[in-house]
C-alpha cells in the first residue's frame, strides 16, 4: 500500500492503495466517482474511459503507480462543471443513450476525439469510436451526435440518416 495524491476533476485527493490497483477501482471504490464503469477489465470495451491530461485512457488497465506526476484526471463527473459539455448537449439532443451503461465511456472518448479533431469526417468518427462497444447498438445516434457537436450548432445537424 502506498499513498498517492491525485489531481482529479479539479480537486486534490489523497488515497492509500496498492501500487498496482487499476485507476478504475481507485476512482470507483476509493473516491466514489461511480460514473466510470467496469465492462471487461482488459481495455477492450471502453466503458472505463477517462481523460489523463485530456487524452482518452482506459482506466481499467492503468495501474495507479503508472501515472506521471501532476497529471490531470478527468472523469465523466468532471467533464463539465457548470454547463454541459457540447458533447453532452449533443447526446441529449440526439436521444443517444438506451441503457446508459457504456455512455460515460463513449462521451469521454468522443470529447477527447473532438478536441483533437474538431471537424471530423464520418470515417474518422468510426475509427475513433470503434473501440467503445455499445451492445444496445446506439452507434448511429452516437455518430450523429458527434457530428452535431462538431458542427457547433444544435439547430443544424451534420450527417444524415439517408
Amino acid at each position: 500500500m502506498s499513498e498517492f495524491t491525485l489531481n482529479i476533476n479539479g480537486k486534490q485527493k489523497t488515497v492509500n492503495v496498492d501500487e498496482d490497483t487499476p485507476l478504475l477501482w481507485v476512482i470507483r471504490d476509493t473516491l466514489g466517482y461511480t460514473g466510470t464503469k467496469f465492462g471487461c477489465g482488459r481495455g477492450l470495451c471502453g466503458a472505463c474511459t477517462i481523460h489523463i491530461d485530456g487524452e482518452a485512457t482506459r482506466s481499467c488497465v492503468t495501474p495507479i503507480d503508472n501515472l506521471d506526476e501532476d497529471v490531470e484526471l478527468t472523469t465523466i463527473e468532471g467533464l463539465s462543471v457548470e454547463n454541459p459539455h457540447p458533447i453532452q448537449e449533443a447526446w441529449l439532443e440526439g436521444d443517444v443513450p438506451q441503457c446508459g451503461y457504456c455512455q460515460s465511456g463513449q462521451i469521454m472518448t468522443a470529447a477527447a476525439f473532438l478536441e483533437r479533431n474538431p471537424n471530423p469526417e464520418e470515417n474518422d468518427i468510426d475509427t475513433a469510436m470503434k473501440m467503445n462497444i455499445c451492445r444496445c447498438g446506439t452507434y448511429p445516434e452516437i455518430k450523429e451526435a458527434i457530428l452535431t457537436a462538431a458542427n457547433g450548432s444544435l439547430a443544424n445537424k451534420g450527417g444524415s440518416d439517408e
Binding site: R28, Y33, T34, G35, T36, K37, F38, T75, I76, E77, P84, Q88, W91, L92, E93, D95, V96, P97, G100, Y101, Q103, S104, I107
Partner: peptide, 21 residues
C-alpha cells in the same frame, strides 16, 4: 412525438445508478 428521453439527463453525466454502484 419524438419527445426527448427523461432518462438521458442522468446517463450523460454518469449519474445512472447501477447495482455495482
Amino acid at each position: 412525438q419524438p419527445i426527448k428521453r427523461v432518462e438521458d439527463n442522468r446517463f450523460i453525466k454518469g449519474e445512472g445508478k447501477y447495482t455495482d454502484d
